[in-house]
Design a protein around this nucleic acid. Structure first.
Length: 607
RNA sequence: GCCUAGAUAGCUCAGUGGUAGAGCAUUCCCAUGGUAAGGGAAAGACCAGCGGUUCAAGUCCGCUUCUAGGCUCCA
């Protein structure tokens, strides 16, 4: 079975990569002076990077290019391999004026590949003497290969967008024009994919966040600085309470530290060196420099220093909910997911001795698993992020790095967690485990993280006395189960489409009066329910009931209760409220309940 | 930050150089009702900001701010 799937995947990759050739062919036909860069297959299609020189390509040009592609495809040219020596290739690319291909050719000549990871894998690998080109009709392109037989084997495609992209992803290189396309085996798959993509827009946390009045962004307040509205703040408060209860049961100690910090602290921790670009700086009247804190760790280290003297106090677990601010590049800011602040992290630092590392790491893993199960979060995976020692970002003792990395790897294996290893993604102070999730558009984000810090505690001179009476430096586990509360709200919105579980719904019940005769009953009932800890609001406007139900449904309120003559009479007779409850479609509770039965349900869902 | 698009009423959007529009929301009036939009009226917009072209600019041009997608995928 599996082998079969792989085969399909390989075929799709070949088909999509061939599609990229077809795109380049069409573009070169329409714009003869275009310079070609690269054109790989991607998850749902392909792209190609071009340098159009002074010509500006716009969205409407895509239709024209697409038309040309279909026209060329009709000729059904085969993909023909042409082998050249490096010198022949050089001459050909110089003659046809293709500087980007020439630059790639140089890498092939010296390292045998253009692929960065392949190049770094084996430094001893020598360059190659020959290269391959592929010819389709009269389009010839430097290419490693991996194509379908001929143009007709390329499935239905649709050019989707134009974007800027640096040559080989490097800001120092020129900005090229990237044309994206989706491409699938058959038309129905393509149409379904496009339809799904369109529907996903309705799950976008920014769309629902606006509709459900969860957050807003004000131009005057500034970019990347979202404001939580009452519903958003309620959600955040509930999540905080939920996590804090779990953590306090596990003996995490909550602390509170200032948002401003003297430069001295970050010099001691090394953050000035690695992060000064990413921190907001403030100068006071006396010319002292302060930073707005982008992370809590150094503050917590100060608390450790004050409070811990002995190994008997380990593991020592500090936790904090504190707003952080980071100086992000403006182009990367998105709704609640990527912001400048506030980033209220569900943050904790666990100080351990070497022999405690694995167990504590596993304990954190099990919190992840239980919390995510409880919150209904699926489709996540663990990424073990390891250092790439060729980059100068990584400092410290290589043995310690290996010790930490192998401890995490063993912990993951022992807890039967599936994970993927990634070189070069580690923090500057140690290896880490990231929890990756895909957003509604299929783009991957880190939702949470566990990081091992083998560097900063030593650099800051943190010490405890071990059982032999000697000084020892603790290892720190930085961990965040929910990431930041604001970002987590965004994930929660996208996962639930705004249908929050009863437990977390900002408003759980809406009471609706049939007419203003019953407004007083509604007000009285609401107030007694609030006293019992139910989050309830009322609709006593002079609208029809149909309208009020519709409004509450659009606001995705879990339960709607209409109060009129029937309810009031029943209460007079039996001395208890009983109602017909209109539950949100995803909630499967009984529709006819007495007040006490309803309260039982709500109590079982209490945080 | 860089590339490509955008920005019109609180919200969603129409308006290709000639008197600023619609629906929803809001306010008021009528209707006092039983489970997804009852009826009517009014009010609401320096068309993101600044500058330019033109007899005339929401519309064309430039800059600024903000928003969206992209800047990892390797011949």
């Amino acid at each position: 079975m599996r082998g079969n799937n792989n085969k399909i995947k390989v075929n799709e990759t070949a088909m999509r990569h061939s599609g990229a050739h077809l795109l380049a062919y069409a573009v070169q036909t329409l714009y003869p002076n275009v310079k070609l860069a690269i054109g790989p297959a991607i998850d749902d299609g392909f792209y190609y990077d071009f340098d159009f020189g002074d010509i500006k390509i716009q969205e409407e040009d895509l239709l024209k290019i697409e038309k040309k592609m279909l026209e060329i495809q009709k000729n059904d040219y085969p993909f023909v391999k042409i082998e050249m020596t490096i010198d022949e290739a050089k001459k050909f690319l110089e003659d046809t004026k293709q500087p980007y291909s020439l630059s790639l050719l140089k890498d092939i000549e010296s390292m045998g590949s253009t692929n960065k990871s392949e190049m770094s894998k084996d430094k001893s690998k020598s360059g190659s003497d020959t290269v391959t080109f592929y010819k389709t009709g009269d389009f010839i392109n430097l290419c490693k290969g991996g194509h379908v037989k001929s143009l007709k084997d390329i499935g239905p495609f649709k050019l989707t967008s134009i974007a800027g992209a640096y040559f080989r992803g490097d800001e120092k290189n020129p900005m090229l024009t990237r044309i994206y396309s989706v491409c699938f085996k058959d038309k129905s798959t393509l149409l379904n994919y496009l339809k799904e993509r369109e529907e996903n827009k309705n799950r976008d946390h920014r769309v629902i966040g606006e509709k459900l009045k969860i957050f807003m962004i004000s131009e005057d307040v500034g970019q990347g600085l979202p404001l939580l509205l009452p519903n958003g703040e309620q959600l955040k408060y509930l999540l905080e309470r939920y996590m804090r209860k779990i953590e306090e049961n596990l003996e995490y100690k909550y602390v509170s530290t200032p948002i401003l910090t003297n430069k001295k602290l970050y010099e001691r921790s090394g953050h000035v060196k690695f992060y000064s670009e990413d921190m907001y700086q403030i100068k006071d009247k006396e010319n002292n420099i302060f930073y707005v804190k982008p992370m809590n760790c150094p503050h917590h280290h100060m608390i450790f220093e004050k409070m811990v003297q002995s190994y008997r106090q380990l593991p020592f677990k500090l936790a904090e909910e504190s707003p952080l601010y980071r100086n992000e590049r403006s182009g990367t800011l998105t709704g609640l997911i990527r912001v400048r602040g506030p980033i209220t992290q569900n943050d904790s630092h666990i100080y351990v001795s070497k022999d405690q590392l694995k167990k504590e790491f596993m304990d954190v893993l099990s919190i992840f698993q239980s919390v995510y199960t409880d919150l209904g979060i699926k489709n996540y995976y663990f990424r073990l992020s390891l250092p790439d020692f060729k980059k100068d970002k990584y400092e410290g003792d290589k043995d310690m790095w290996d010790f930490a990395s192998s401890n995490i790897r063993e912990a993951l294996k022992e807890s039967h967690s599936e994970f993927k290893e990634e070189i070069g993604e580690a923090a500057f102070y140690g290896p880490k485990l990231d929890v990756q999730i895909k957003n509604v558009y299929g783009k991957e984000d880190s939702i949470a993280t566990i990081q091992i810090d083998i560097l900063v505690p030593g650099r800051m001179g943190l010490k405890y006395i071990n059982k032999y009476g000697k000084e020892e430096t603790p290892i720190v586990i930085h961990r965040s189960i929910l990431g930041s509360y604001e970002r987590f709200i965004a994930f929660m919105i996208e996962q639930t489409g705004g249908n929050f579980p009863l437990k977390f719904a900002p408003i759980q019940i809406r009471l609706i009066s049939v007419s203003d005769k019953y407004n007083d009953n509604v007000i009285e009932l609401a107030s007694s329910m609030r006293n019992l800890g139910v989050r309830v609001d009322i609709d006593i406007t002079e609208e029809g009931i149909g309208k009020k139900i519709r409004t509450a449904s659009l606001e995705k309120i879990p339960a709607k209760i209409v109060i009129g003559e029937k309810e009031v009479l029943n209460r007079k007779n039996t001395n208890e409220w009983a109602f017909t409850i209109n539950w949100r479609e995803d909630l499967k509770y009984s529709n006819n309940l007495s007040l006490s039965e309803l309260l039982d349900i709500l109590n079982s869902e209490k945080i």
